[in-house]
């Protein structure tokens, strides 16, 4: 059947919602020392640029402040409250990792004005999120699910885990490339599998990292295969080699004619004029973080590995490789010290 010429119109590309995680994932790069004044300035500027969602918490999510992950300068509730006060249109999101943060912690930041709960589990452990999704929906929060280290399992298994989250009340499940280990075809297969599984029950999202320099490219692939929420951070600020840079994401989607509701030029200004002057050390894809991408090691481990390397006189990329071989997952930062002690003992043996 031929299409009548008069119905041919300019194709409107579907909307993609950007989430800026500078004030959450970016927090790793500043060892969780963002002040409420930093939060105020970044959140206000992102809000003015039209960023629809801004994620704010300790880098490891609610209750992340600890010996194991680093103590934050402020409580999550203080950071969230500062962000909420600074924005007019943006929604404030929080991250929570079951096993670390609790429903009690979620209620506290909800009271402080957080509107979106993002619940993260290792990619095979989605069922530990059910309690938190249920609570978030009861609180009237919007929900997002994070399947971390998504490269560790295949598309079909990932889709089954996504289904568990969606059935628990999750409204968008992310393929999270926590180690920056996914190549474009792997992103395509995973996003397609989730879209096929979830249909209209939940959206699909993508969270990328720069270890193999693929954050933006992978985000485009994710979008083209149906992902409708994408994460970034200003100046790639984040764990390991850093995240997909928000300012490049906004620019590229603008060039492609994909609607985001974000003013790309203004986001460039925020990155350059607001965020960059705050940061003493921006993440780079160096030997240690490329090793992370190659061996699929959780990105937050980088600075912990560097500290352990200093403390025990061993090299950080060696630690990271061992940690990758052992199959440690997000949250097992304590094992970095254990591995470093082991390497140091071998050296003196």
């Amino acid at each position: 059947m031929s299409t009548p010429e008069h119905t041919q119109t300019i194709q409107i590309k579907p909307f993609v919602r950007l989430t800026d995680s500078t004030l959450r994932d970016g927090s790793h790069a500043v060892r969780h020392q963002f002040t409420t004044s930093d939060v105020t300035r970044v959140a206000a500027a992102l809000d003015a640029a039209g960023m629809p969602v801004i994620e704010v918490t300790h880098g490891d999510g609610l209750a992340g402040s600890s010996f194991n992950y680093g103590f934050g300068r402020h409580t999550d509730a203080e950071l969230v409250a500062a962000a909420v006060r600074s924005v007019r249109q943006a929604k404030i999101a929080v991250l929570v990792l079951p096993g670390l943060g609790t429903v009690h912690d979620l209620k506290e930041v909800h009271s402080a004005g957080a509107q979106i709960a993002r619940v993260a589990t290792h990619c095979t452990e989605a069922d530990v999120s059910v309690e938190h999704f249920t609570a978030a929906r009861e609180l009237g929060m919007e929900t997002v699910g994070f399947l971390m280290l998504s490269h560790r399992i295949g598309p079909d298994e990932l889709a089954r885990q996504a289904r568990i989250m969606a059935d628990a009340g999750c409204q968008c499940v992310y393929v999270v490339d926590s180690a920056g280990a996914l190549l474009p075809d792997m992103v395509r297969d995973r996003v397609q599998a989730l879209v096929a599984e979830l249909g209209t029950d939940a959206q699909v999202g993508f969270h990328g990292h720069q270890n193999l320099s693929l954050g933006v490219a992978n985000s485009i692939v994710a979008y083209e295969n149906g992902a409708r929420q994408i994460d970034g951070t200003l100046c790639a600020l984040g764990a390991g080699a850093g995240n997909t840079p928000t300012e490049i994401l906004a620019t590229v989607f603008d060039v492609m004619g994909i609607p985001t509701g974000v003013d790309a030029a203004k986001v460039l200004d925020v990155a350059e004029e607001v965020l960059k002057p705050m940061i003493t050390r921006l993440p780079v894809a160096d030997r240690a973080s490329i090793v992370q991408g190659r061996y699929g090691v959780y990105n937050s481990f980088l600075l912990h590995a560097e500290r352990a390397a200093d403390r025990y006189g061993v090299s950080s990329h060696e630690i990271l490789q061992k940690v990758g071989e052992a199959g440690y997952v997000g949250g097992q930062e304590d094992m970095i010290i254990d591995v470093a002690i082991g390497l140091a003992a071998q050296r003196t043996a």
Partner: peptide, 15 residues
């Protein structure tokens, strides 16, 4: 207190 579930095979001994 923090708890982590690790799916590695063979299964990891409790740490």
């Amino acid at each position: 207190a923090i708890i982590i579930l690790n799916p590695v095979t063979p299964p990891m001994i409790m740490r």
